[in-house]
Amino acid sequence: MPPMDNTISPLAPKPDVLDFLLKRRSRPPRSLGTDTPDDATLRRILTAALRVPDHGKLEPWRLIVLRRPAIERLISLTRTRGAERGLGTERIERDINSYTDAHLIVAVVSSPKPSEKVPEPEQQASAAGVCLSLLNATLASGWGAVWLTGWRATDRPYLSQGLELYPHETVAGYLHIGNEIRTPPERPRPDVDALTTWVET
C-alpha cells in the first residue's frame, strides 16, 4: 500500500488569505516612507505578481523597477512634459508630489503581442492583473503599496523619453512601494448585493 500523501492541496481552504483579501487596503503615496524591500524580497514579490491569467501564454507585460535616481529623472520629465501638454502649474505640482517621497516604483508595462487568438484588450487585462497581483503581494509581504496611473501612463513622449518604451507599449500601472508611516482611514466599500446579478436559469 503506497504511503499516504500528507501534502495539503493547493485548493484547500485558506481562511487567513481570504481574510487578508477582505481587509486589504492600498496605501496613498504620502503614507509611504523611504524604506523599501531589498532585492531578494522584491524579486519574490515580483515572482508572485507574474502568476496571473495569461491566455495563450503570451506574457504581454514586463516590469521596470525604478529606484530613486530614476524617479528623480521622471520628476524632472513630469515638469517638462506637463508644461508641454499645457497642464496648469497646480496640476503639475500635484503630479510631482506623488513622486516626491518615492524611493521604489515598479512600472507594469502593457506590451501586447501579435496574436490571432488573443485580442489586445484581453492582453491588457492580463497586464492589469499583474498590477493587482503585485499590489497584493507587496501588501502581503508587509510593505505598503499603491497602484497609480494618470497621463504619465499613456503619454507617448513621456513613455519614450522616461522609460524607453516601444511604440505599442503603455504603462498599466505605477506601483509605489515603501514602508508604512501612517495608516489611511478605511473608506466605503462596494455593496456586493447592489452590484451583483444572480442568474439561475
Rank of each mutant, 00 (worst) to 15 (best):
Y99Q: 02
V130T: 05
S115K: 06
G144W: 10
C131K: 02
E116H: 09
L135S: 01
E120C: 05
W147P: 05
S76D: 14
Y158V: 04
L159C: 03
Q123Y: 11
H103P: 07
K117P: 04
N97D: 15
G88M: 04
I105W: 12
Y166S: 12
Y158A: 07
D95W: 10
V109T: 03
L132R: 01
E93T: 08
T78E: 08
A145Q: 01
C131A: 07
L165Y: 06
P157D: 06
L159S: 03
R79T: 08
T149L: 11
A102S: 06
S160N: 06
K113M: 14
I92W: 15
T78G: 01
T80K: 13
T78Q: 10
L132I: 09
L134Y: 10
Y158E: 00
A137W: 09
P112I: 07
P167N: 10
A137N: 05
P121E: 06
P112W: 09
N97W: 13
P112A: 04
P119C: 06
E120D: 08
V106R: 02
Y158N: 03
A125M: 15
E164T: 10
R91L: 14
R94N: 11
E120H: 01
K117L: 12
Q123P: 14
E84S: 08
R156P: 14
R152H: 05
V109P: 07
G82A: 02
I92K: 09
L159F: 10
A102W: 06
W143Y: 11
E93L: 11
S115P: 14
E120Y: 03
L135Q: 05
R85Y: 07
I92A: 03
H103F: 09
S110A: 12
T138G: 08
W151T: 02
R81K: 12
E90S: 13
S98I: 08
V109K: 02
G82I: 09
E164V: 10
K113P: 09
L163I: 03
R81E: 15
W147E: 03
L132C: 02
W147D: 04
S133R: 02
R85H: 05
V109F: 06
C131Q: 01
S126A: 15
G129F: 10
W151D: 01
W151I: 12
I105S: 03
A125I: 15
V108A: 03
E164S: 11
P167A: 06
N136W: 10
L139E: 08
D95F: 13
Q123V: 13
V130A: 05
L148N: 00
R81V: 12
R91A: 15
W147R: 03
R81W: 02
S126K: 00
T80R: 15
A137D: 02
S76W: 07
G144R: 03
L148K: 11
A83W: 09
T78I: 13
G144C: 07
I105D: 05
T138R: 03
G129K: 05
P114F: 05
G82N: 01
D155G: 04
L87M: 14
R85L: 15
R79W: 11
I92D: 05
W147Y: 08
T80L: 15
L159V: 05
P157N: 00
A83V: 14
R91E: 15
G82L: 09
L87A: 00
A125K: 01
G144L: 13
G144K: 03
P119R: 00
S141N: 12
R152N: 05
R91V: 14
R91S: 14
A107E: 08
L163P: 06
I92Y: 11
R94C: 01
R91Y: 12
